[in-house]
Amino acid sequence: MDSKMEEKDFLACCGSKKFAEEMTSSGPFANLDQAIDAARDIWFNKVDVNGWLEAFAAHPQIGQNPSAKHPSDTSAQWSKGEQSTALQTATDSSLQELSDWNARYWKKFGFVFLICASGRTASEILAELKRRYPNRPIVEFEIAAQEQMKVTELRLAKLFSTQVKAASISTQNPETAAKKAGEDRVSIIGAHLTATSEASAGKTPQISPRTRPPITTHVLDVARGSPAAGIEVRLEMWKGNQPRPLFGQEDEGGWVLEGSSITDKDGRSGQLMSMIDALNPGIYKISFNTGKYCPSGFFPYVSILFEIKESQKWEHFHVPLLLSPFSFSTYRGS
Rank of each mutant, 00 (worst) to 15 (best):
L154C: 11
E175R: 13
S123L: 02
E183H: 00
S197W: 06
S161Q: 14
I188W: 10
L129G: 00
G182Y: 03
A145H: 07
L129K: 07
E198T: 04
T211W: 13
K203M: 11
E124F: 00
A223L: 11
M149K: 04
I143F: 13
S118V: 06
Q163C: 09
I188G: 12
A191C: 08
S187A: 15
A177T: 02
A177E: 05
P137S: 03
S161K: 13
A195C: 04
A122D: 02
I138V: 06
V139C: 05
P227A: 08
A117R: 04
P214S: 12
Y133D: 00
A145M: 12
A117K: 01
G230D: 07
P134L: 07
A201F: 06
S170A: 15
V151A: 14
T196C: 11
S187V: 05
S118E: 09
K180Y: 10
K179Y: 07
V186H: 06
L129T: 01
K180D: 07
I207A: 13
Q206N: 14
A167V: 01
P213T: 13
N173L: 10
E140L: 06
G230N: 08
S226E: 10
H218G: 10
D221L: 01
V151R: 13
R136Y: 08
V151F: 07
P214C: 02
A144P: 02
G230T: 06
L154K: 13
E198F: 04
K180A: 12
A122K: 06
A178K: 10
E198G: 01
T152A: 11
I125T: 05
S226N: 09
G119W: 01
K158A: 13
L156V: 06
R131Y: 08
A167G: 07
S200R: 10
S197F: 08
A127V: 02
Q148S: 14
S226F: 04
S200Q: 12
E175L: 14
P205N: 06
V186T: 09
A157S: 15
I138W: 05
E124Y: 03
V186E: 10
S161Y: 09
K179H: 07
P205D: 04
R136A: 11
R210C: 03
I215P: 05
R136G: 04
R185P: 00
R212P: 00
A177K: 02
E175H: 07
A195V: 05
V139G: 00
T121Q: 02
